[in-house]
């Protein structure tokens, strides 16, 4: 099998996952009905299908697509930046930092009864971005030692940032109003349940834009796997590359957190499996990670809202259930290798 056929497989999976996500739910649609909805050839009595698919399921599937692709690609980038297959935004505390900063904004503003007006629209994602950038900066300062990043230092740095963010959020919860409290809980276990067209208007172009940009950096990311000094000797402008990548990854993490909370391990599972099939080269790895990450999160979200229907499991719980065994396996194989 040619390696680039992985992209075809990924694309097929993504389309299949999207159709599944649109068809499955409290009221399931047959393929024929789905076709009628998309082509607008429904009978009048079936109008509810139109509403369910286009106003409820479609935005949710699109959000899962954008966030899944972005989480998985960000994982690939972080793993190259730290030269470590265990780096991932939620493990490193970047998502935690974003969640804490966003929660702080959400709780503190009503508490002080500040009038923010139009600021509300951008302030939440913006504070999430600041939180993500701060966490990323701390991790990179603590965990980087010359050519390679020490696994234990990296993970311990992530643990401490996550602990701090967790404590901060717990503190905010005691101060928060009931409405804010519901949102906070949702954030800590990511969920795509809030997806609507207005959330997508900002988030979707941003996330997809980053996803389309990242493959341009493939060659430099390959060089980065050799070490920072080595990449510089190969002609990579290393400092500007690192700044750009950290900014993009933090922006992606902040956007996903602001829209759907912390969804962990996608950025660990997908890159790990794809590297086994494709090798470490980023030219194929980045687009493939986008396709498979998107497909995986759509399937996981569909499962999250149907398995215990009418109850909904936070999708972050499902991805953790998939990801933690793999993570422990990776840790173990590092010790035996």
């Amino acid at each position: 099998m040619h390696r680039s056929s992985i992209l075809t497989i990924g694309f097929t999976l993504l389309v299949a996952a999207a159709l599944l996500g649109l068809a499955v739910g409290a009221s399931a649609l047959t393929p024929v009905q789905l076709w009628q909805v998309t082509t607008g050839t429904l009978t009048r009595s079936d109008d509810w299908m139109h509403a369910v698919v286009l106003d409820v399921r479609l935005p949710r599937v699109l959000l899962a697509l954008a966030i899944g692709a972005s989480l998985s690609q960000s994982g690939v980038v972080l793993q190259a930046l730290f030269r470590n297959p265990l780096a991932e935004q939620s493990l490193l505390g970047i998502s935690g930092g974003a969640a804490f900063a966003a929660a702080a904004w959400l709780v503190v503003v009503p508490l002080l009864s500040l009038q923010t007006g139009w600021l509300d629209l951008i302030a939440l994602p913006l504070s999430a971005l600041l939180g993500a950038l701060l966490a990323a900066w701390v991790v990179i300062r603590i965990a980087r030692t010359g050519s390679a990043t020490d696994v234990s230092t990296l993970l311990l740095a992530g643990i401490s940032i996550n602990a701090l963010a967790g404590a901060g959020i717990a503190l905010l919860q005691t101060l928060a109003s009931d409405a804010a409290l519901r949102d906070l809980t949702l954030w800590f276990y990511g969920s795509l349940g809030r997806a609507g067209w207005s959330e997508l208007a900002v988030g979707l172009p941003l996330l997809l834009g980053i996803s389309l940009w990242l493959p341009r950096e493939a060659q430099a990311l390959d060089a980065l796997l050799l070490g920072e000094a080595e990449a510089a000797h190969l002609g990579v402008r290393i400092e500007s590359l690192k700044r750009r990548l950290l900014l993009l990854v933090s922006l992606a993490a902040a956007t996903s957190v602001a829209l759907a909370g912390i969804i962990g391990f996608i950025g660990l599972i997908v890159p790990h499996l794809l590297r086994r099939l494709l090798g470490p080269g980023h030219r194929l790895l980045l687009p493939a990670a986008g396709l498979f990450g998107a497909a995986l999160l759509i399937v996981a979200d569909t499962a999250a809202r149907t398995v215990f229907a009418p109850l909904e499991v936070p999708v972050g719980v499902l991805t953790a259930l998939l990801g933690v065994p793999l993570f422990l396996g990776l840790l173990r194989s590092r010790h035996t290798a």
Binding site: R83, D222, A223, L226, L234, R275, P280, G281
Partner: peptide, 20 residues
């Protein structure tokens, strides 16, 4: 020192040399 832990093939590794 050599810190490469990722599974490039030798040919892929050498191709990295052509970056600039």
């Amino acid at each position: 020192q050599d810190a490469l832990a990722f599974g490039f093939t030798v040919r892929e590794l050498i191709t990295l040399g052509r970056h600039a």
